[in-house]
Design a protein around this nucleic acid. Sequence first.
RNA 1: GCGGAUGUAGCCCAACUGGAUAGAGCGUUUGGCUACGAACCAAAAGGCUCCAGGUUCGAGUCCUGGCACCCGCACCA
Length: 575
Amino acid sequence: MNSFEQEIAEALAATGSFEKEAALKLISVPPDTSHGNFTIPCFSLAKVMRKAPKMIAEDLAAQVKLPAGLSKVEAVNGYLNFFIDRGFLAKSTLEEIAAKGLEYGYAAPNGKVVCIDFSSPNIGKELAFHHLRSTMIGNSLSRIYKAAGYKVERINHLGDWGTAFGKLIVMYLRENRPTDDATLDSLTVKELNILYAAFSKASKEEPGLEDEARAAFTKLEQGDEFYRKLWTAFRAATLKELMRIYDMMGVGFDHYTGESFFEDKIPAILDELREKNLMVKSQDLDVVMLDEFDLNPCLIRKSDGSTLYATRDLAAACYRKKEYNFDKCLYVVDLGQALHFKQVFHVLKKMGREWYKDMYHIPFGVILQLVDGKWEKGKTRTGTASLLRDVIEAAQKKILEFIDEKNPNLENKELIARQIGISALTFNDLKNSRLKDVRFDWDAVMSFEGDTGPYVQNAHVRLCSIMRKAGIERANLAAAIKDVNFAELTDDAAYSLINLLAKKGEKILGAVAGDEPSVLAQYALEIAEAAHKFIHEDRVLGSPEEKSRLFLVQATQIVLENVLDLLGLFPIRQM
RNA sequence: GCGGAUGUAGCCCAACUGGAUAGAGCGUUUGGCUACGAACCAAAAGGCUCCAGGUUCGAGUCCUGGCACCCGCACCA
């Protein structure tokens, strides 16, 4: 907690040995609580003070006047360790949770706007397992940023424009599929996926097919009515399935402004590039040179005049700045596209958009799949990627077997099984740092023991179960705290748990600082572990400390529920 | 070739951004349900943190040079 650090710094300043600011900078958190809650390593002071670190720590320990709420200060091997009084920590932490409820640990609104571009799948293809990463990292980040005080614009930059549609159109017509309204209306994304795979197979034997697809897209871009009609049908079919899955996963967006949305905003960008003499011809292409940044040129237009990915991203960035006036704009996209974003950001810089430095690519490692004995990037195009809906279905089925064994009479068990399954997949994605590559392995993904979503959810369920047995449906913390005797919450198990609950605010800020949901995922594991231990060691119902302990159960449930929510997991109450 | 990411226990990962004895989970071995939910708890074993140098009171973390693996590099998005 900040106030403790402030007070420790002041107390140290009062000894006359150093300035408050300097002291504040030195304060850190020891690796485990046996060394206290705060510590000052005295090694760096040795030179200035001309004393051994051990002596410095001992002298300071003798001189410093302990601020209120701290119970002990001790010098160990050159470290000056401060201990918080357990009863004091319990009181201050639990009172704050009682006052703030689910929003305990949230930062006050800071008036800043952050745009988060995530998920952004390509239309015409089914969601593959690897789409889960951007979707769930972005979903979680958008919740975490909100908790940190930002106004968040969640943007799904659908890949609904580009040569890919040329491919679909070419293949659709080549197979002589009917193009009446009724048939087009009933198109499914599954069929489109098959068309894609067929195209990529056919184009291997017929190199001319790629050109045909490019020509088809150019025709579409030029406004051909028939092609437009096909495109609309392809888009609608994909969107329908997409919404079904987002719904299932509890993911939502504020804007579905796909690439096609920026079609009519591109000419202005091209004009500006020309006016500023930034666009040059190279190999029959329009490009912006980026030599001065040690980057390859950014491709703006193909030789036939149609636009590219980067062009539409430029238009999108300018539109977003104008429309939302963001302070930060995040792109949650895999690491493989780092170069693309670097190029786009630098073109913006050359265009004189000073806000280019507020643009951040939030990269993450790729999902690798075993193809013919080698780990490689799964590709929806060639059909080597596992489909997200298949993975979700398999997870649900597996969890359902678990439920049938442990709790067969559970109501709504199909729904709960799916929620646990989706949460497990999500947690698996969020618990590690973003940049690690993930090797997709069915057995590993379908294992639900140990450091997993179900482990965290189970802790939450057990807390809810105790509350239910005590006749509490929904915690009313403000009323219940009157009966708490904080001295009864100072044993090791209770203290460890409370000490963790007290860190919620700093964990939220830590997750935002690194754009890392894993900070909160690891935190959720720590709370779950401490909660399991607490209810295992400290009997709640029927014990002399029942009221105090029951309050801690409720406070933990509230914190855990919200942390699960910030991660985008379902905080279920029974399983 | 150039650029980027990663490398920590048999496997998969942490380590609060340079601090104390490098921590969890899976797997292995063992103990605990007539028990507020055992999807749990407890214990044991398991480490030259890829290699070689450097920076300093102190390096898994920073710098240099290698090695391994993955990704990207002109008309896909």
